[in-house]
């Protein structure tokens, strides 16, 4: 008798149990919606960039868009070749990486292999502060400090130039590269270092020939994410690099990047669905595809080439 009532109790849970279960389901689906919002944002980015820019390709052929060497969509006669903007983006990014990769890697090697715990505790927050400076402040710094300084060295340097913008952008990326690389280097197990020291290697030889190759997947992924950051950087280049779209790989020139063009057009009041409005979405679409490719390669490198110890 007692047993049967117990099994009845289990088979027919009281109201409280039902409510509790419903509440659990409700909370879980609410949290699921939160997580799904990320996917929704990604879809929204793709759909909006796609639908808003599709109108442009009714007037301009895709071929002309990607191979044209003149970009003047707001003038008569309008030209829609995106290569000048891509060229500006690549040049400023290259200068930035030329600064950020050597400095970032050196700092990472130094912090992980040479520096004492005390130095590390002080240097890392400083680097974090450098990473936290708003980009518009960096832009101001590039335009009104770095450019005049460079003009002392190169008197012919124009007021807007890719060199100053790229250099400052490089300094901005240093903390990202150094902290990601350092994490990768510090996860290299100590046995490898000890083996190297036992064979008579110095700290530098250990760092360069043992730790760096062992951490290379993490280090290279930090480089690639740095590239993606440089390609997407907006304010520094639109303040300091100039707004003329032209094909030039000379750092001393002024040239517009893809991001600077979007800012330039947005500052004017463009009517919805006009051709200028469509061009910024087309440029944005190319931009997001480029960074997406870099990010995917970066994360893939990190995951698939991780050394197993």
């Amino acid at each position: 008798m007692a047993i049967s009532s117990l099994s009845e109790a289990i088979a027919a849970p009281p109201r409280k149990q039902v409510i509790r279960r419903l509440k659990e389901r409700f909370i879980e689906s609410l949290l699921f919606l939160c997580a799904f919002s990320c996917v929704a944002v990604t879809i929204a980015i793709m759909v909006i960039l796609g639908t808003e820019s599709i109108g442009l390709f009714k007037t301009v052929s895709v071929w002309e868009f990607f191979t044209g060497t003149e970009w003047a969509p707001l003038f008569e006669p309008a030209k829609y070749g995106i290569l000048p903007l891509v060229c500006g983006t690549l040049t400023t990014s290259a200068i930035a990486l030329f600064v950020a990769i050597p400095i970032g890697t050196t700092i990472a090697l130094f912090l992980s292999e040479f520096a004492s715990q005390k130095v590390r505790v002080w240097v890392k927050p400083i680097l974090e502060i450098l990473a936290g400076v708003p980009t518009v402040v960096y832009g101001y710094f590039a335009l009104l400090f770095v450019t005049p300084l460079l003009q002392l060295l190169f008197p012919d340097l124009p007021g807007f130039n890719m060199l100053a913008a790229g250099l400052v952008m490089g300094i901005m990326i240093v903390p990202q590269i150094s902290s990601m690389s350092e994490d990768a280097m510090r996860s290299v197990p100590d046995e490898l270092r000890e083996g190297s020291y036992a064979a008579g290697a110095t700290k530098l030889q250990t760092a360069w020939n043992v730790v760096f190759p062992a951490a290379f997947s993490g280090v290279s992924s930090s480089y690639i994410l740095g590239i993606s950051r440089a390609v997407g950087e907006t304010m520094i280049v639109s303040i300091a690099a100039g707004l003329q779209a032209k094909i030039s790989f000379n750092p001393m020139d002024s040239a517009a990047t893809m991001t600077a063009y979007i800012v330039q057009v947005s500052l004017g009041d463009l009517p919805h669905a006009s051709i200028g409005y469509q061009t910024i979405f087309a440029v944005g679409f190319l931009l997001v595809s480029m960074t997406l490719i870099f990010n995917t390669i970066g994360h893939w490198l990190k995951r698939h080439y991780r050394e197993q110890y």
Binding site: C38, A44, I48, I280, G284, F294, N295
Partner: peptide, 25 residues
């Protein structure tokens, strides 16, 4: 895995693209 990749990619999208999304949406 899909959501996972999404979150990492969203963190790497240039900020100006969010601006374009906001403009259109």
């Amino acid at each position: 895995a899909l959501i996972e990749i999404n979150v990492t990619n969203l963190a790497g999208v240039p900020s100006i693209v969010y601006g374009l999304l906001a403009l259109g949406l």
